[in-house]
């Protein structure tokens, strides 16, 4: 038992080293005093300082954040309502609609991107518009909604159906019952969906690449354009910053959850002691 335990720890440690090796390289070279990505020539904060005066980088960061926030919020609204509507449908209708809904999740990103770009280019020729922020946003909302539905749906199934009836018996209108009873009950699913949608949007490159046109550039697209030449360590710097922000948020969240769990354990221990 001991032996397999050691082997297990070793295996997990090795996997984590594998996953973090390039990330550590990336972070270390964001402090490198030259443009080289393999030779260390001294410590500097220059790339971080340069970053905040580089218009192109900041602009692409702004586009990424704007499209991710907007797409995540809109997808969460549309997706939550869609999940409720699907939930109330007969299986005959729900099953095929959910299958269609999941197409962007299952399909290869490149096909989602290419198919949307075919639509946008043909519609653009017809109605005289160019690919840009609008088409980018539509694409992001489209691939985000299924993730929202997938995280809200299970919460609806857990819902006690009597709750809604009880609220109405106690004098709530449909809308009041919906806002005061249903929404709070499924809130964890909604928030989870929002976070997943935001993550998918920030990380997306392929679909954006095919649907943003030539005038708008997300951070991913900007980085891709750079990989053809040579990536400036500024990009290492901005990724390090984003990584640290996410890390801090996750740690805070983790501590909070652990505390809640501990509090709950204590509470249940006390209650059990009473009985």
């Amino acid at each position: 038992m001991k032996k397999s335990n050691f082997f297990g720890r070793f295996l997990v440690a090795l996997t984590l080293i594998f996953l973090y090796l390039p990330i550590i390289v990336l972070i270390v070279f964001s402090f490198n005093d030259s443009k080289s990505r393999t030779v260390w020539s001294g410590f500097t904060f220059d790339w971080y300082i340069k970053l905040f005066s580089d218009r192109a980088v900041l602009n692409s960061l702004y586009v990424t954040l704007a499209v991710s926030v907007l797409a995540a919020v809109l997808a969460t609204i549309i997706g939550t309502f869609a999940a409720i509507g699907f939930f109330n449908m007969r299986r005959k209708w729900r099953a095929p609609l959910l299958t269609i809904s999941n197409i962007p999740v299952i399909n290869a990103d490149i096909i989602t991107g290419v198919s949307l770009s075919l639509l946008f280019v043909s519609a653009g020729a017809l109605f005289k518009f160019d690919l840009g922020f609008g088409t980018l946003l539509i694409a992001h909302i489209t691939f985000n909604i299924p993730y929202v539905i997938l995280s809200v749906m299970p919460k609806l199934y857990q819902l006690d159906k009597n709750l809604f009836e009880a609220a109405q018996d106690l004098g709530c209108t449909w809308m009041q019952a919906f806002i005061k009873v249903i929404i709070p009950e499924i809130r964890p699913g909604i928030i989870n969906g929002l976070i997943i949608a935001f993550t998918m949007s920030v990380d997306d490159f392929v679909i954006s690449y095919f649907t943003a046109g030539s005038k708008v550039q997300t951070l991913s697209m900007f980085i891709y354009a750079m990989t053809r030449k040579r990536i400036s360590p500024e990009i290492n710097a901005i990724s390090t910053l984003l990584f640290v922000i996410v890390l801090v948020l996750l740690i805070i969240n983790n501590i909070r959850e652990a505390r809640q769990e501990k509090a709950l354990l204590k509470k249940s221990a006390v209650l059990e002691g009473d009985v």
Binding site: V12, T15, L16, L19, Y20, L21, P22, I23, V25, L26, F29, R37, T38, T199, V202, D203, F205, L219, S220, I223, Y224, T227, I231, I235, N236, S239, L242, F243, V246, L247, L250, N254
Partner: peptide
């Protein structure tokens, strides 16, 4: 550990791959 496994996904996919080039 699950958090640690998911965390790299927050670094841009292109950059993680590009970083392998340096290696």
């Amino acid at each position: 550990i699950i958090m640690l496994i998911m965390l790299p996904m927050w670094i841009n996919f292109l950059l993680r791959t590009y970083s392998w080039m340096s290696l």
